[in-house]
Design a protein around this nucleic acid. Structure first.
Lengths: 195, 195
DNA sequence: CGCAAACCATACCGGCCGGTATGGAAATGT
DNA sequence: ACATTTCCATACCGGCCGGTATGGTTTGCG
C-alpha cells in the first residue's frame, strides 16, 4: 500500500502539479482515505519524497534494463540516451513532475539532496558509458565529465523550452534530439551512423 | 505605487518563492497594506504578471544599455552575453524567480504566454547579434537559430545545475561560463580572444 | 468651498487543506 | 478464545491567505 500511494502521488503530481494535489485526492486515487496516508507517511513532504524515490528507482531500473541485453559500448550509450529522451523529454507528464521537483528543491533542502543524488548517479552512469565507448575506440573525447555535463544541461534546456514549444518534444523529433545529444557528447554524425 | 508594488513583489518572490509570499507581506514591504494592493491589482495573479513585466522590461533595458556604447558586432555580442550571465546565472535570487516562473508556466497559460514572448524576444535579440557578427566576418556560423537555441538551452541547464552546485555560478566562474557559451555559439577560442 | 474621484487602512469572511483524534475491522500471535 | 498489533475510515480542528466590504483620508477640479 505505501508503494501504491507513492505511485498514485507520482501520477497525480505529474498531471496537475504537486501544489495542486491534496492528500485526499492522492488517497482517493489509491482507493483509500487520508487516514491511511497518515498511517504510512507522517506528512505530505514524506509522501513527496516517496514519490521521488519511486521515480528514481524506476528510472534506474529502466536504464539498467536498457543496457542489459547489449554489450557493445556505443550501442549501450545510444540506447540509454534514446530511452532517456523518451522518458524525460517526450513524456509531458514526466516533464511536469521533474519541473516541480526542481522548483521544490529551491526551498526544501531534503528534496534538493535527493534530487542531487539522483542527478549525480545519472551523470556518473553516462560518464561510465562514455568512458567505455572511448576505451573501445568507438569515440574520441578528451573530457567525458564536461561533455556529459553539457549534454545533461542541454536536456534540461530542451525540457524547459518544450513548455511553450511542445512540438520540439513530439515523438517525431526523437531521432533528431538523440542525434543532437550524441553530437554534444562528442560523437559525430559519421560515428553515430556506424553504430 | 503600482510599480513600487511590482518591485516589492519581485524582490520578495525572488527571495522566498512566489508561493511562500503573501499579499500582506508584499504590501508591508512596499509600506502599504493589502487594501492598496487590491486597489491597483485585481488579484494575486495580476500582481505576479506585473512583477514579471517589471523583470522583462528591466532586462531589456539593461541589454540595450549594454550595446548602446559599442558598435563592434562581436563586442556587442560578448557584452550582452556577459551581462546575461551575470543577471541570469550569477544572481541567486534571479535564478529563484525565473525558476518559479517556469514552474508557474506549467499550469498558468497567461504566465506561460508572457514568459514565451520574453524568451522569444531574447532569442531574436541574440540571433540579430550573431547575424551582425557573421556579416562583419567576425564569426562563421551556418545556422544562427540553432546555435542560439543551443546556447539558451545550456544557460537554463546551468541554471538548474547551479541549484545544488552553486559553485559553478560563483563570480569566479563568469569568464569560464561566457567563454563556454561563446563556443556554443560557434565562436572558437581564438576568435573570442581576438575580440 | 464643496464635491467627487482616487487612494489607502481596518476589519472581517470563508474556503481549502494539512494535520489529528478516535474508533472499528482485519490480521497475527499465543 | 483473547489480546495485540496493523491498517484504515470518519469526523473534525485550525491556521493560513486570497479576497471583500467599508470607512476614512487625500487629491484634483469646477
Amino acid at each position: 500500500m505505501p508503494v501504491r500511494l507513492a505511485q498514485s502521488a507520482f501520477a497525480l503530481f505529474s498531471k496537475r502539479g504537486i501544489a495542486n494535489v491534496s492528500l485526499d485526492q492522492v488517497a482517493s486515487h489509491a482507493g483509500v482515505t487520508k487516514g491511511s496516508v497518515y498511517w504510512h507517511f507522517k506528512s505530505k513532504d514524506e509522501l513527496i519524497k516517496a514519490a521521488c524515490a519511486h521515480y528514481y528507482q524506476d528510472f534506474h531500473r529502466r536504464m539498467n534494463a536498457e543496457i542489459a541485453p547489449v554489450r557493445d559500448p556505443l550501442k549501450r550509450l545510444e540506447r540509454v540516451l534514446r530511452r532517456s529522451v523518451r522518458i524525460c523529454l517526450l513524456d509531458t507528464e514526466n516533464r511536469v513532475f521533474t519541473m516541480d521537483i526542481w522548483s521544490l528543491s529551491l526551498h526544501d533542502a531534503e528534496v534538493r539532496r535527493g534530487w542531487r543524488q539522483f542527478y549525480d548517479s545519472v551523470r556518473e552512469f553516462y560518464i561510465g558509458l562514455v568512458r567505455a565507448a572511448t576505451l573501445s575506440g568507438q569515440m574520441e573525447i578528451d573530457n567525458p565529465e564536461r561533455a556529459v555535463n553539457l549534454m545533461l544541461e542541454a536536456v534540461e534546456g530542451i525540457k524547459l523550452r518544450a513548455m511553450f514549444e511542445p512540438q520540439i518534444c513530439s515523438p517525431a523529433e526523437e531521432n533528431e534530439i538523440v542525434k543532437s545529444l550524441m553530437e554534444i557528447l562528442g560523437c559525430g554524425k559519421r560515428t553515430a551512423k556506424a553504430a
